[in-house]
């Protein structure tokens, strides 16, 4: 039961490998287009929520404007594919460029928004979101409020149409989670979490807060932009109110909070549980408001009763349970050793 640290580590590696293998086999096990469609969107959210968590979860600066980066990546792909006359799988090469476009946008956003403290920061990210939505609706390059169409591949086999999107999404998602692990274990990740706990003290101890925060935001924006580009290619059209959707921001934050803010596995769990349920609910009730009300109610429940997320709370229970087990075992072992198995020994602390 109580494995040594080395055994626990190899167990964890085996678990992660099994999960990735399962994810890789998913389109073969469930070739149904609805299932793979859910899979693509869920993987996009795994990547985006993990990327959001690398910035917001680690640094404590909650961003409610990641849709800005998502939408920038999306519009970049649409416009570049149209102007450079790309079709088919060649369009996938635009994803890193879409990420780069989002990262470029993140620099001025961060330089302005990261000068203020946390609660004003949240509000400013919301304001940037509305600027982006408004610009997309009014600029000619984005096709205005009627939006643009993406040249979707029309010669792909309908039965396996979703698969290329699925595997590209899987690569982005796995790479993002690996990056989240690497950052969490690095000195850089420690600096980010020091900023979260007490920015003034961290700065006093020599953490250069602004470059650390800004680079985390830019990195997070890069991944979010790539995911947005993949999403828009998958959906096939870019309309301002869907590309810059306030519900997207909320969904990402809820998924992060649900699993556990600042942990690596939490956002992944949040996306894996919540995104498919929401997609399924939308399939059952297409009116829109049912999922909106349930979504808000779930959000309240998580904030009020599980403010630290499912995983940290569960980990606490497990640790407490283990400690209790250990104590009981020590008592049982201690009792024969003392050679006084009297009823009184059982009640000793």
């Amino acid at each position: 039961m109580l494995a040594s640290p080395g055994a626990a580590r190899s167990l964890r590696i085996a678990g992660v490998a099994a999960l990735i293998a399962l994810a890789a086999l998913f389109p073969i096990l469930f070739p149904n287009p609805t299932a793979t469609n859910f899979g693509v969107v869920t993987l996009i959210f795994v990547a985006v929520t993990s990327a959001w968590n690398i910035f917001s979860g680690y640094s404590g600066y909650l961003s409610l404007g990641h849709a800005v980066f998502y939408g920038t990546g999306a519009y970049f792909l649409v416009v570049a594919a149209r102007d450079w006359h790309l079709t088919g799988s060649a369009i996938f090469w635009l994803l890193p460029l879409g990420g780069l476009a989002a990262a470029l946008i993140a620099v001025p956003v961060g330089l302005i928004a990261l000068r203020v403290r946390r609660h004003t920061f949240v509000v400013i990210t919301i304001a940037f979101f509305f600027i982006a939505q408004l610009s997309a609706g009014n600029l000619s390059v984005t096709g205005g409020s009627s939006g643009l169409l993406v040249p979707v591949p029309n010669n792909w086999d309908p039965a396996t149409y979703n698969n290329p999107f699925y595997y590209v999404g899987l690569i982005i998602a796995v790479a993002t989670v690996a990056l989240a692990v690497a950052i969490r274990r690095s000195r850089y990740g420690l600096q980010l979490r020091a900023i979260r706990d007490d920015e003034d003290r961290a700065a006093g101890l020599g953490v250069r807060a602004m470059p650390v925060k800004l680079s985390a935001l830019v990195l997070s924006a890069f991944i979010t932009g790539m995911a947005g580009a993949l999403w828009v290619y998958f959906i096939g059209q870019a309309v301002p109110q869907f590309v810059f959707d306030p519900l997207f921001d909320l969904a990402v934050v809820l998924m992060g909070f649900f699993g556990g803010l600042g942990t690596v596995a939490g956002p992944v769990l949040g996306a894996l549980v919540l995104e498919p349920s929401q997609l399924w609910l939308n399939l059952q009730e297409s009116n829109g408001y049912t999922s909106e009300i349930l979504f808000g109610a779930l959000f309240l429940v998580v904030i009020l009763f599980l403010p630290r997320g499912v995983l940290p709370t569960a980990a606490e229970y497990i640790t407490a349970g283990r400690a209790r087990l250990l104590r009981r075992r020590e008592q049982q072992q201690g009792a024969p050793g003392a050679q006084a198995p009297t009823p009184a020994a059982g009640s000793a602390p």
Partner: peptide, 13 residues
């Protein structure tokens, strides 16, 4: 802030 956002969402729904 997030709780208020959730309230807003429910009210809108």
């Amino acid at each position: 802030l997030l709780a208020c956002f959730a309230v807003a969402l429910i009210t809108e729904g």
